[in-house]
Write a protein that binds this DNA or RNA. Structure first.
Lengths: 342, 342
DNA sequence: TTGAAAGCGCTACCAG
DNA sequence: CTGGTAGCGCTTTCAA
């Protein structure tokens, strides 16, 4: 609870001098400095966050947030946007503004352009769902060198200098789906899996986790087939239908990413909703409806709201304190949702 | 983003006057007042929380937090304490101190005494897990009239004037257990239930919710017997053992409150851990171990950490803004935990 | 009934 | 290299 003022008084110097020492700005007489540091240590000085925040108001801090377009087939990101907007509003009274951009899932150029535009606008921090590509990493690394903090959201990216990752532990998400499937099938069953693409790291990790758990705890369960739907409902419909038609022994379905509606339509068209145990991912409105209707039994969710709000909080804290969070990985909770706790 | 200063300038008065009008303190010339209100409305003035917080530091705000004793058999509350301590530390830099007290689950006098002692200490707000009794309600009502805000935690209490409730929706918690049990038993099974006491509202609500869901969605499932263990592991052991011995047809067990360890020991002694599907409540260390060991299949949790931290935040916000939160009920999330997402 | 000023903790800037 | 001062938004006290 020591303040700069107290330290100044005790040391017989002005607050400015204490500030210079404690925040390493400008030069100070070594003796004075030593004395100040000693007193600060003695009093266990920790800067008061409110004081810092108040004095930052006039700086007009600006953040950028680039997210995968909400106009694609995956409405998941709308919930992320809700989180962004809520936190943006909260930060408004500190004079912070947030500029949102949308970019495509698998298209590098637009994302690079968005980043450049935001830099040109003079942002003080950036949060984004990065396309997993070396050119993006390099670009982010350059932001890092410019002193602009970057937070990766939903999907992490290596060699980018990002100060933190906020998102799901996809492996554990898959494991949870596997564990739950085992419980619901009582350890026996033949499982079909539908996912976006094995090339997307998060998707791959999910089926890995899923398979690992079955192998470890459910020797009598097997994964019959894994199909890709590229997060597209139409494609999802067809690949699921074909898979189920070819494998009548399948009695469990794990939909590991988007395309939930398409897959379920296939199930319904084949009249298999009673027979199949279905676990999906996330809880967009259509998924919620399908759970309510009893088609989907459970969904594994990843707190999209937090994925929108937390990154902005991390950036803001970084601006305030000028240091990275203690841990650079913020895994969102892995939530199991069924009809009763939606 | 309008500030008091701006309004004062525009109105041609001092900040003090604007403050008096906007916060209804002291008398102000009606004309001046009208003018100030008009400008404030025009600029959509909202007080800056940081400014308010900063100026509240010197007031030495003090909160009390009364919680069920952590020395009883239910270690659940230790996690609540962790939440209290974390938030206390966070509030420290605003000059806030928090005084913890422990009182017994079913003993009125000590809780009344604790409340009186805290009042004597001059607390500015109180959070507590209230014993559900009219004498407690009355006492809390008197705090309300003294202008001391009260938040009920974990268990709500009527006619007490509390400004908010933070805790689980017990009915929904029971429903979730029911829904999950149905999924894991594939709609067929005979269930035994163990709970603390039917006289405790939260416990009763849980079995109500549980039973409702079975009735609604699982016509082929039945609740065979409901036993009380008074949250005591030894008692839990005996009643569970007896129940299972008398009813060999039971193949599912719902442990709705504490006494999880005792109940599971009974199951293990009878060698029924493979046969029974077990759903418990909360995730204290022993429960976590039992889930890891595969004895318990799933547990329905109620975010104890939040139950410790959120009430203090609500009290603090109330002190800052002098008004109640928009909603007076803060349900914690109902989390389904299995081995893979513990 | 109102204005002026000090203070909460920190930062920034100017003058020396 | 250092002190002094003003300012961020709000509250409170003293004086008029």
């Amino acid at each position: 609870m020591a303040t700069i003022k107290q330290i100044a008084n005790l040391a017989g110097v002005s607050r400015g001098t204490v500030d210079r020492v404690l925040n390493n700005r400008g030069l100070v007489n070594p003796e004075t400095e030593a004395k100040i540091r000693e007193i600060a240590a003695l009093l266990q000085y920790t800067p008061n966050k409110i004081g810092k925040t108040l004095s930052i108001i006039k700086k007009n801090i600006k953040f950028g947030f680039i997210i995968f377009s909400s106009t694609t087939s995956n409405p998941y990101f709308e919930d992320v946007v809700t989180g962004i907007d809520a936190k943006s509003k909260e930060l408004e009274e500190f004079g912070v503004t947030v500029e949102k951009r949308f970019s495509d899932f698998d298209n590098i150029e637009p994302q690079l352009n968005s980043i450049d535009e935001l830099i040109a606008q003079g942002i003080n921090g950036l949060a984004l769902t990065p396309v997993n590509n070396p050119r993006i990493s390099e670009k982010l690394l350059s932001l890092h060198h410019m002193g602009i903090p970057v937070v990766a959201v939903n999907s992490d990216i290596d060699h980018s200098g990002r100060i933190a990752y906020v998102g799901s532990n996809h492996t554990q998400s898959g494991e949870t789906a596997g564990g739950l499937m085992r419980l619901m099938k009582n350890g026996h069953g033949n499982i079909g899996v539908v996912l976006g693409s094995k090339d997307i790291r998060g998707h791959y990790e999910r089926i890995q986790g899923f398979a690992d758990i079955l192998e470890k705890y459910a020797p009598d369960m097997r994964i019959i087939e894994v199909q890709e739907n590229h997060d597209d409902d139409i494609e999802s419909f067809y690949v699921t239908k074909e898979m189920l038609a070819h494998h009548p022994e399948i009695d469990g379905l794990y939909i590991a990413s988007a395309g939930v509606y398409g897959a379920c339509r296939a199930v319904m068209q084949l009249g298999l909703e009673k027979k199949l145990t279905i676990i999906s991912s996330d809880s967009v409105p259509m998924t919620v409806k399908l759970i309510r209707d009893g088609v989907i039994d459970a969904s594994i969710c990843q707190q999209p709201f937090t994925q929108g709000s937390k990154p902005l909080q991390i950036l803001f804290d970084y601006i305030i304190s000028q240091k990275k969070p203690e841990t650079d990985i913020f895994f969102t909770d892995i939530e199991i949702k069924i009809r009763e706790n939606l």
